[in-house]
Structure formats: C-alpha cells, structure tokens
Simulated scan of single mutants.
Amino acid sequence: MRQQEPFLNYWSLPGTLVRQGESLEDAAYRIMAEKIKVNNLYLEQLYTFGGPQRDPRESLDSYGVRYLSVSYFALVRFEEAELIADRVAGIAWYPIKQVPQLAFDHNEILAYGHRRLKNKLEYSPVAFDVLPETFTLNDLYQLYTTVLGENFSDYSNFRARLLKLGFLCDTGIKVSRGAGRPASLYKFDAEAFAPLKDKPLVFI
C-alpha cells in the first residue's frame, strides 16, 4: 500500500531504487528479502517497462526525467512464504483474479508476468523450482491448473504426457491424503532432463 503521492493509498508491486554498485538482480533479491521470508526463491528478469507518461512525476520534471522499471517475477512455495509486515506500509497477497486497480502501470506488468509464467510452464521445467523435492502428480497438476486455469487439460492426459517425457522418477514411496488410495511420490530427475534441455518440448 503506497503511503505517498503519486497514487496515495493504492496497492502497488514491491519495488526499489538500485543502489550504487548494486546489480539489478541483487536489487530484486534485496527488495524481496525486505517483503517476504522464504528459503527457496526462483527469480527471473521479466521485461523493462518505459512507456512515456507511465509515471505522473515525469510531467512535473523540467529536465525530462523518465522513470523505467526493470521487472522480475519470483516463484515461491506459498505455504513456506511469510510476508514481512513493517511499520511503513501494508503488504498482502492477492489472488490473480482479485487484484484491484494498482498504481502506475503495475496491472500491465502483472498481466505480462502472468502470461510469461503460463508460457514457461508449457516449455520448461520451471514448476519443479516451486514444488517440494518429492511430490505427487496431483500436486503438479494443481500447480498447473492454478496458473493456466481449470480447463487446460484433464488429469489423465496430463499424467500420461508428463510420464512419457521420462524425467519424472517414481521414488517408490506412497502417501495417503484423504479417503482416496495412496499416491506415488515423484522427483524431478535433472540428469534425465539434461539431454532434452535445448530441444523443443511441450510439457502440457
């Protein structure tokens, strides 16, 4: 929650100015560390947003200053992530479908990041950076449906496609959850995936 103009009392994405001698990536990690406690964090540069008039302060500056935002997206395991509430600003999680009107062009940034994540799930093993070391196929399916929507694929086809790719390793361990039959725990086999890394793949 912004505590100053412009966009006083609007929600915004977390951001920071880059310090002297600091890389963009280090600045992104720093601001995340100030807002969230988490052990496993996947961070990737998204895009540079620099359209004219994206910040109202530009029109007030007589020197023609422009405000650029180099955006990153991060993936965390929600149940392991703890927001850091401080005395300066409110901070909150929002489901993607319930995000309000944000400050600046942050709704555009968020939408762009969501599209990028959808695309990455289709061709890369990024999902395994978020899942625990061992997981059920239903855990994996739930992650995909959370990002891609409920109708992206039925579970049977999803399961068959992922197992056919050959880099999910059955640990031989089963886990019981609820009234259903025990489910097998799998691991992502990085060595089995390595020869496929530079080949065009469709995960879903």
Rank of each mutant, 00 (worst) to 15 (best):
S69G: 15
Q20E: 15
G64R: 10
S71Y: 09
Y63N: 15
E79L: 04
P95G: 06
I91M: 07
A92M: 12
Y72N: 05
L17A: 07
M32F: 08
A85K: 08
R57S: 03
S71F: 04
L83E: 02
R19K: 15
E34I: 08
G90D: 14
Y42W: 10
L68G: 03
S71M: 05
N39L: 10
V70P: 08
L17Y: 13
S71G: 01
E58A: 06
A85E: 14
G90W: 01
R77V: 01
L75P: 00
K35L: 00
R30W: 05
G90E: 13
L17D: 11
L17C: 09
T48G: 07
R66L: 11
V38Y: 05
Y47P: 03
Q98C: 00
P14Q: 11
L17F: 12
S62I: 11
Y67I: 03
D61E: 10
Q53N: 15
K35R: 14
L68C: 09
P14G: 04
L68H: 13
L13I: 13
A27T: 06
Q45C: 00
F73C: 03
V76F: 08
L24W: 09
F73R: 10
E80Y: 10
L68W: 13
A81C: 04
E44L: 04
G64H: 09
V38G: 04
G90T: 03
I84Q: 13
L13D: 05
N39H: 10
E82S: 02
N40Y: 05
I36R: 08
E25Q: 12
G51V: 11
I91Q: 07
L60E: 13
P95F: 09
E82C: 01
L43M: 08
R77E: 12
G21D: 11
V70E: 15
K97W: 09
R30V: 00
I31K: 03
E79R: 09
I96T: 06
Q20P: 01
R19L: 12
E82D: 12
L83S: 07
Q45V: 06
W93P: 01
Q53H: 14
T48D: 14
E58K: 05
A89M: 01
G90K: 11
K37M: 06
G51R: 12
P52S: 09
I91G: 02
R54V: 06
